[in-house]
Computed example of a mutant assay.
Amino acid sequence: MKKSLIALAVLSATSAAAFAQSNVTIYGIVDAGLVSERGGVANTTKVSSGVGAASRLGFKGTEDLGGGLSAVFVLESGIKADTGESDVAGSIANRQSYVGLKSTTAGTLTLGRQYTPYYESVRDVADPFAMGYAGTAKNLFGVAGNNTRNSNAIVYQTPVVEGFVGEVSYSVGEQAGDASAQRQIGGYVGYANGPLNVRVAYNARNNDLPASKLSTDVGHNTLIAANYDFAVVKAYAAFSKDKGTNSSALGNTSNPFGYTVAPVASKDSTVALIGLTAPVGPAGTVMASYTRKNDKEVANHDADQWAVGYSYALSKRTSTYVSYAKIHNKNGASYTVGNNAEAGTGDKAFNVGVRHSF
């Protein structure tokens, strides 16, 4: 009888441990490249981190709670591969930091610092360069600052149903005395089936600063994007309408071309993109895009970007790349050619580098 009770206790403990089994993964990217920027006040040649994809170190995990429900978390910090420093001084998990619950039938709810649905849609559906290299869509699309990711966010993503998926994000402003100040709301609806991927995304940020009694308008971004894989080539197209304060913030705000009057960001513009990727042999990929920024304000700060790149996979985890992009600024516009981690200093840039994922 005593032996039976001991065996039952051991079985019960083992079952409980299996039920609450958790899985933690350490992951990251180390990306470094040689960057040459021309056309600004001063030409620059340097070694940069995160040219193709931002260098990072992260921890992510899941715990099976039973019944199709899991706990999930991510802690992700940006690093500078060229110097070994954090990309934001004093930060621990500045890129992503969230915890939540994931259900196989009800979707996923997470809380913390996270990407905006608008940024995810440009990166995952619209941009052949996936926000990296000299050709990144960041150069002309309104994804700078809080439009990339925001803190204090509550995000819900639906499960995929017949190819359809949706996401809603609400970022609490946390401004004393004004619940709407600095608040950010966004979402997307997407459909992916076989070679077709389509997404419509929206972002709105209240720019009020109650502490300084400064009242500004709300910045709005509306995007429609699609790509279609023809096997021999994958075609991309996107259109974004950006209106209001900080709807299309300049990546480089230091007057990089030395104008007598420093340009300011447009509060009313559209961006259109067409592009492609194409496999070359078993391990190579060509990337190309044309992007046009149409400023609808009186200054008419329009810009066109042409970009081309090539990535070669040395293995499943390691690749080399080369890319070039040129922006034609009009009427005193000051858009710069950057990469995934930098805003750039000139109207053209060339980069070559190596990326390793683990």
Rank of each mutant, 00 (worst) to 15 (best):
K2M: 12
A9M: 10
A9N: 08
A20R: 06
S22H: 10
I26W: 15
I26R: 07
V30N: 09
A32C: 09
V35E: 09
G39F: 15
G40N: 06
V41K: 11
V41Y: 09
T44W: 05
S49L: 01
V51T: 00
S55H: 00
L57H: 03
T62M: 11
G66D: 03
G67V: 04
V72R: 13
S77P: 02
T83R: 04
Q96D: 06
L101W: 05
Q114W: 13
V122M: 09
P128W: 00
A137S: 15
L140Q: 05
F141Q: 01
R149Y: 11
V155R: 10
V160K: 13
V161M: 14
E162P: 03
F164D: 01
S169M: 15
A181N: 05
R183F: 09
R183Q: 12
I185Y: 12
I185D: 08
P195C: 13
R199W: 13
R205M: 11
N206K: 11
D208G: 05
D208P: 06
P210Y: 10
P210R: 06
A211S: 13
A211W: 13
S215M: 11
D229W: 01
Y236L: 01
A237F: 13
D242G: 06
N246K: 12
L250Q: 00
L250W: 02
P256F: 13
G258M: 07
L276C: 07
L276K: 07
T277N: 00
S289W: 08
R292S: 12
R292I: 03
K293L: 14
N294I: 08
D295C: 07
D302H: 12
A307L: 07
S311K: 15
S311A: 15
R317V: 05
S319K: 15
N331F: 14
V337I: 14
A341H: 10
E342K: 10
K348Y: 13
N351H: 08
V354T: 04
